[in-house]
Nucleic acid binder design. Structure first.
Length: 137
DNA sequence: GCCAACGTTGGC
DNA sequence: GCCAACGTTGGC
């Protein structure tokens, strides 16, 4: 079981939208590092849904329901997509600002490499954020 | 809206 | 295969 963090601009695709639609295809990733992370995901893995540009906070949890397949928005198999569903929203959203201030989270990829749109989260980081957010898994 | 950080492209 | 030029992302 691995943990992830996926970023989206809420203008383009928000956690609310995913929740309304039930499930979503995470496509359009055009970065190799991010793609490799998509390909490493297993069905049943959980990920944080982070709003970039606006909000700058983790808003909820999603679950990977289908492992990597060729990105339908691209001809060929160079890029990959996955399928996700809303797992549950966080009771309390966790902002980037808080993350930067929290011991144990200062080395998160989100902080160290803010441009990577699909990134791994360690179990320790995951647990801290879940705890802070007061969310029951 | 600016700009730093990073990735990609293409000429040599 | 190097690296300058350019494009994109995302925090501020």
């Amino acid at each position: 079981m691995s943990y992830w963090l996926l970023k989206s601009e809420p203008d383009v695709y928000s956690f609310d939208k995913l929740t309304k639609e039930g499930k979503g295809v995470w496509d359009g990733v055009r970065n190799y590092q991010a793609r490799n992370n998509l390909r490493a995901m297993k069905e049943g893995d959980l990920g944080f849904f982070y709003h970039s540009n606006e909000g700058l906070e983790i808003v909820g949890i999603l679950e990977i329901t289908k492992e990597a397949f060729p990105d339908p928005t691209f001809e060929g198999d160079r890029w990959s997509a996955i399928e996700v569903v809303t797992y549950k929203p966080l009771n309390k959203r966790i902002s980037l600002e808080e993350i930067k201030k929290t011991k144990g989270l200062e080395n998160m990829v989100l902080v160290k490499n803010s441009r990577l749109s699909v990134q791994p989260v360690t179990k320790a980081e995951w647990n801290i954020i879940i705890e802070m957010s007061g969310t029951d898994i």
